[in-house]
Computed example of a mutant assay.
Amino acid sequence: MATTNHSSMTYFILEGLTKHPELQLPLFLLFLGIYVVTVVGNLGMILLIAITSQLHSPMYYFLSHLSFIDLCYSTVITPKMLVNFVSEKNILSFLECMTQLYCFLIFVIAEGYLLTAMAYDRYVAICSPLLYNVVMSHKVCSIMMAVVYSLGLFGATVHTTHMSMLSFCGPHLVRHYFCDILPLMALSCSSTRINEILLFIIGGVNTLAPTLAVLISYAFILSSILRIRSAKGRSKAFGTCSSHLMAVGIFFGSITFMYFKPPSSNTMDQEKVSSVFYTTVIPMLNPLIYSLRNKDVKYALQRLVGEKSAS
């Protein structure tokens, strides 16, 4: 209880993305533009899927949730980062910092498992097309999404609970632009051994399990595609997976670089660059990847724009 009371009176100052004053305004404008594109792109994808009957399938059901998650965890991080560009000191209370960490972890963990669910959806669609509507029923998809969000809540609760038990004393300068696990552990004046073990175990499972599941799914998918005789059929099958593969590679690649690189290579500049990529750039890229590379989405968008123009 003493530790909790001590921590509850702590405040944190976010260092921000850069210390160079001349870069503050250009970076503010850049990330404001990225955030606007992220909000418009993801909200647009959610609305397009909701109002287009042709997109009411399991694949697009998962895609709408991906857009929702991207929108949420970008909103948890980016507005605070924008404030940091235009204010002298970006001060957060202990409660605000833990809330930001908690919300961020929920959505970033959930996204990893959602990408796994999407890989399974592609596996069923290509390897068992005749059973697709049975295996990927609305009930099954809803259960899968409940599991995805539950795993996000579990991981976030465990990490944030143990983080709140740490004592923070001395300088409260977080050498980052948001409250993340590694920068906060660096500020603690109590033992972080349990937190490090939890990061290794839970973070490892949340990265390794989805990655292996995706690799196994695509091994079966590749095997099925190679058995397709027509070049057109193979090209179509690859096309249905290419957008998802790009999203998986970008997301897990940046997460792995951030949290599982060798300790000797730990520099805050590298961590900030990697964090910027998966907190602001990926949520912007995902709707662009799926809208530009997916024929159904492009057709639905063109049809919607055409109807608006005609009216």
Rank of each mutant, 00 (worst) to 15 (best):
F168I: 03
D269L: 11
V297I: 07
A50K: 14
L187A: 05
F277V: 07
K139A: 12
Y278C: 02
M1E: 14
V36A: 14
L92T: 09
S137P: 08
I250N: 07
T256P: 11
Y177C: 08
H56A: 13
V147P: 13
C97H: 08
C241H: 10
L92W: 11
H172Y: 14
H6W: 15
L226E: 15
T99Y: 13
L55E: 06
Y60T: 01
P26D: 01
I221G: 03
G306I: 04
S235C: 09
C141L: 01
L288S: 04
M145S: 05
T3R: 15
L212G: 07
F94T: 07
H244G: 10
A125V: 05
Q54K: 15
F238K: 14
S142Q: 09
I69Y: 04
V135R: 15
S230L: 00
F94P: 05
S223D: 12
S64P: 04
G170E: 14
S224K: 11
L226P: 12
V135D: 04
I221W: 02
F277K: 05
R122Q: 01
R293M: 05
M185R: 01
T280V: 08
R234A: 04
L47I: 15
Q302V: 11
I109F: 12
G170V: 14
A186H: 08
Y113N: 11
A156W: 00
C127Y: 02
G41H: 06
I46F: 08
C189K: 05
V134I: 15
V174P: 02
S57K: 03
